[in-house]
Structure formats: structure tokens, C-alpha cells
Amino acid sequence: MNYMSEAGSHHGYDNSNNQDAVIFKKNKEYCVMVLADGVSACNKSAEGARIVCNAVSEYLLAHGKRLIQMNRKYVAEYLLTYVMFKLNEIASETQIDVNEYSSTLAFVFADRRNGKMLYFSIGDSLIIAVRNSGCSIVAMPCDSRNGCCVTTTYNASVMAEVGVVDTDNINSVFICSDGAWHLMYKRNRMYESFKSLLINQEYVKLKDVLSSAERYDDCSFISADISDLRRGRRK
């Protein structure tokens, strides 16, 4: 597993102001990695992103086995209901409007026994599956020109990208925030240098490159290789 989460220039590169959050959890049966990107305009979005990462990872380790078999629509509804429950809890505790805790949410949950992987995304994060043959898109960033769907959006479950894929032929899975993919892409095409880092799974180098890049937005990614996603497989 590799990750980075660093503040951008609009937060003065000060990580205490970073509004992104990532989490990775793994046990014998399951592996889960979550990325949440707090909405800049919201006062408590960094906290919201952390709460969402924790809540979703806990929920998935407890119920992911069932979710992976469910209709996609229900996966989104159940998950987001739980997320909203957690956010409402903190909002009522702090007496702060729940919308102030808004963030995007993207995760993958792998059943390490059979190689099935549930993916989910609301917002403008990107999920990529890295294979020997190249990188393919698992979940595309949504249209964020006019603000995108986030955890607190009314009827957000309808907008979620949800699905199950097999991890056969996948070498690693990579989730990143818009701050990261904006650096990795020129318009709609990924720069060859970044593509090569992903295909060769050079995530430490990728972290160095992104870390040293001039960036406005907070920048985060998390990746897991096949040994994390599937039991008995080696990197």
C-alpha cells in the first residue's frame, strides 16, 4: 500500500489545513481503501472527510461482504445513509450545519478470498486499475465545472458510480483526488511519464513527483497492489 495526502498552495502547503483524507484497512478476508476530498468552501470539510473515511472503512469491514452481492443502487443508498448518519451525529453535537462537513467519497473494497472488488465514487476523484497492458478507468471523475455531487447532496446515491470488478489481471488499484489527477493529465490524456510510473507501480516515485509539483489544490492518492487485494498473490 502506498499513499500521499498533502495540502496545496491555496492552503499554503500547510498540511494541518489539508482537506483531503485517505484510509487503508486490511484483514485476512478484506481490504479497503477510502479517499475523501473536503469541499473547499465548507468550514468543516477536513473533519468531514476524516469522519467519512473512518465511517466507510468500518462499515465496509463489517458489511462489505453483503454489499458486494447487492444491487448497485442499494449499495449507494445504504452506504450514504450511514455516512449521513455519522455526519448528522457530529453536526448535532457541534451545532454546525451538516453541509459544512461535505466531501467527495471514493473507495474500493476487495474480498481477498475471491478477488471480487466493489468500487464506489461520488464526486471528482478518479479510480484506476493498473494492468500489464496499461491503466484503465474504473470510476471517472464527475463533471465538477459547476460544483459536484458530494456526501451531503440530496439524492447523492443516484449520482454514485458503483460496480463490482474482478481483480484478475489487475496489478494494482489507484485512487486519487482531483488535485492529483489534474497534475497527471493534460486535458483528457495522461502524461506518458505518469502512465509509466503507474504501470511500473513506482508509487514512491509518484509520491515524490506529486509532492514536489507546484499545485494549487490539495493532492492525495492511495494505492494497493495485488497482494493487498487478493490473498496468496504476490506483487
Binding site: M140, P141, D143, R145, N188, M190
Partner: peptide, 25 residues
């Protein structure tokens, strides 16, 4: 302005819709 047109590419499966530069949108 180097605007883009998205299609599901076999040669470049990592291609995304860049909503900021997509000609149609």
C-alpha cells in the same frame, strides 16, 4: 484552445472526460 473530444479508447483506456475542455459540453 486545445479542446477535447472524449470517446472510449482501446488504445488509451486511461483517457477521461475532461469537462473543462470537452467540446460538446
Amino acid at each position: 484552445y486545445d479542446m477535447t473530444y472524449y470517446y472510449k479508447s482501446e488504445k488509451e483506456p486511461e483517457m477521461i472526460i475532461d469537462y473543462d475542455s470537452d467540446i460538446e459540453k
